[in-house]
Nucleic acid binder design. Structure first.
Length: 263
DNA sequence: ATGCCGGGCGAAGCCCGA
């Protein structure tokens, strides 16, 4: 019985964070990692430190903003970067690939879902449209009935117990009833929230703002998620949030979420 | 709550994030 470790992490600039990510890879040794908010162009992604640690890299980058990647100890095949209705969407927010394991496959996506604030702007409309596109794509890939992990920064607080102070976030684009309903529509296609399948506690956050002492006061929110197909959920053995990565020098404002599977 | 952080860009100050 082998263990497959799959993680997601919004690194908030891969250039600034590359040493910290490499250090984390050495410590945790995940098999597959979904990264978000690279803030660099594809050709500028620092592949060397990760290849030196035995990882293959698939990158969908963009200058200054957004950017997503997959790292994998196994080869990454059939890489795609578009969602239905992509049109002229110039924002690098989605990358998907197939990881070939012994006799089976894992389909993994790295998602950087739009923030959507303020709610009276076109950014919010873009977020909701993007979520509908993700839903349609999720429906299509779920039909393959394979191990599937839709991992990333969803910019969605799913419920009241995923935020330190619900009143402080009421009306925010991450927490409106409309946003949460759109997220549920995706989950209800048949996906499992990996963290909540393993840990029902309050105080399970993945993001703390840099400002206002949010980290020392533990004013966090849970917005980074691994959503699993039934085939993946059946093999899930654990899921944890790597809170320790919020401390130290020059941390990202997000921390990794790590899931383990028996394969 | 907004922009008190932090990062990108680019060389000061604005844009953006959640």
């Amino acid at each position: 019985m082998a263990t497959l470790t799959v993680a997601t992490w919004n690194v908030n600039s891969i250039k600034i964070r590359q040493d910290g990510v490499a250090d984390w890879l050495k410590t945790v040794a995940p098999d597959v990692v979904a990264l978000q908010e690279l803030k660099c162009e594809t050709k500028a992604f620092p592949v060397a430190p990760f290849e030196d640690l035995g990882y293959n890299c698939a990158v969908h980058g963009q200058k200054s903003y957004n950017g997503v990647a997959l790292l994998s100890k196994f080869p990454i095949e059939d890489v795609t970067t578009t969602l239905p209705g992509d049109g002229d969407d110039g924002q690098a927010r989605y990358i998907e690939g197939v990881i070939s394991l012994d006799g089976q496959a894992l389909r993994i996506a790295s998602i950087y879902l739009p923030n959507g604030n303020p709610v009276d702007s076109d950014k919010y409309a873009y977020k909701l449209v993007w979520m509908r596109r993700l839903k349609e794509h999720a429906r299509a890939v779920l039909a393959h009935e394979e191990m599937l992990v839709l991992a990333g920064d969803y910019n969605v607080i799913p419920s009241e117990r995923d935020v330190h102070d619900p009143e402080a976030w009421r009306g925010d684009a991450l927490f409106t009833l409309e946003t949460r309903r759109a997220f549920r529509e995706i989950v209800h296609l048949g996906l499992t929230d990996a963290l909540r399948a393993c840990d029902d506690a309050e105080d399970r956050y993945t993001f703390w703002d840099y400002q206002g002492g949010a980290w020392p006061k533990n004013h966090g929110i849970r917005i980074d998620h691994l959503l699993l197909s039934p085939e993946a959920a059946a093999r899930l053995t654990g899921c944890r949030i790597d809170r320790g990565r919020r401390g130290g020098e020059k941390p990202s404002d997000h921390v990794p979420v790590v899931a383990e599977f028996r394969i």
